[in-house]
Amino acid sequence: MAERNNMKEQILRTSGVNPLKCMRCGKCSATCPAYDEMEYHPHQFVYMVETGDIEPLLNSESFYKCLTCFACVDRCPRSVEPAKLVEAARLMVIREQGKNRLKPDDIPAQLDEDMPQQLLVSALRKYSK
């Protein structure tokens, strides 16, 4: 239980989000372009962080699918900012030793000649520490 609370506290601190503001309308998930690729959806991030049910979020790959497009942030009627929780959960995983999702060695295989540098730096920021 203490561990559970600790993880919740850390996510709240890192994100600066107050999930209690949520009125559970689901607009974040309604607007999310990556919804179908996620196991846990934006509104579930908010609810599960609120209830301290963090572990399933961390074990899922849902947060790698978040596009950080801020549609959920801008359209949330309650200003909850779900994307910030997704980011905090993702950081909680990749900040751990050896948990980088994307390694520089993986990149050459993915390259194509039109690929903008912006894509690589963004992906490294999001998937690695």
């Binding site: 607009k27 998930s29 309604a30 607007t31 919804y35 959806h41």
Partner: peptide
């Protein structure tokens, strides 16, 4: 349907309504 609409996209003479169905757990 319990859930909010996230986006309405006019497309031809249709309006594509994208929404949450929270009880079914789907968009």
């Amino acid at each position: 349907i319990k859930g909010m609409v996230g986006k309405v996209t006019p497309d031809g003479d249709k309006l594509v309504v994208q929404a949450s169905d929270l009880l079914a757990g789907k968009q």
